[in-house]
Amino acid sequence: MPKYLRSLLALATVSLCVGALPAQAALKVLATTPDWAALVTELGGDKVNVYTATSAFQDVHRVDAKPSLVARARTADLVVATGADLEIGWMPVLLQDSGNTRIQPGSPGYFEAAPLVHLLEVPSAVDRSMGDIHPLGNPHVTLDPHDIATIAKALAARLALIDSANAAYYAARGDDFQKRWQQATLGWEAKAAPLKGVGVVVIHRDQAYLCNWLGLKELASIEPKPGVPPSAGYLAELVTKLAATPPKMILRNAYNDPRAAEWLSQRIHAPVVLLPYSVGGTPEAKDLFGLFDDTIKRLLAALK
């Protein structure tokens, strides 16, 4: 079959030439969640071109390694992922099939957020009988603004490292973001003061960082084990258990099935609060600032 080998060789030559051309003006970033995409936009402005692999209506644990994502991984200069095994079901396929060495783990073009912050709920022992637990700790790190600040600092530095021509630009935007973010965080903390000690029920343990930050008390979770949907028996048990310490509200994310939460809500007379969880989860959560603004607004509204 020398004929097809020849055409393949020709193709290879052409693509090598294309690859050798100077990089395009905007840095291509593949972000695994809308939150990381929003953060990259805050820091990178018009110097970056961000593609978001998932939306706020998707459970990031369960995403297909779809062809469109493999194609985006091929051309990405930088992958921004959560890490801590959150994307383990699909990210390895994208990285392996991409034929792109820039974004392989260990390269500057592969950025993981979770290892930068103090992870909650790191299990001392892991076993699949415990459900979908994460050996490295709870990976849902986006809902504590202090963690976002830490991650933003590292991400700005990473952008400057990869795209050194615009290093000063990223540094300036990074500083500006930190200032605005710090200001906003103080505002949120002041506003959210009445939430301290308020008892809540969650669905999956993906609000752990929010609860930890605001001092909300997680009294129970609707999933008996991470990733395991509740049975009728378990829900009935919850009703009895929660009678002693009635929660003020049940937290639900945009991507959760509302049925179990609503069933429980009727029995224990606590409202279900829909939270955006991710940028884009509610119309108000347009960016990271909107995400926190809206989350706190909705929590406070439920408290009244």
Partner: peptide
């Protein structure tokens, strides 16, 4: 295998 540098796969 060769993957094209395009938005389509």
């Amino acid at each position: 295998r060769w993957l094209a540098p395009t938005d389509y796969f």
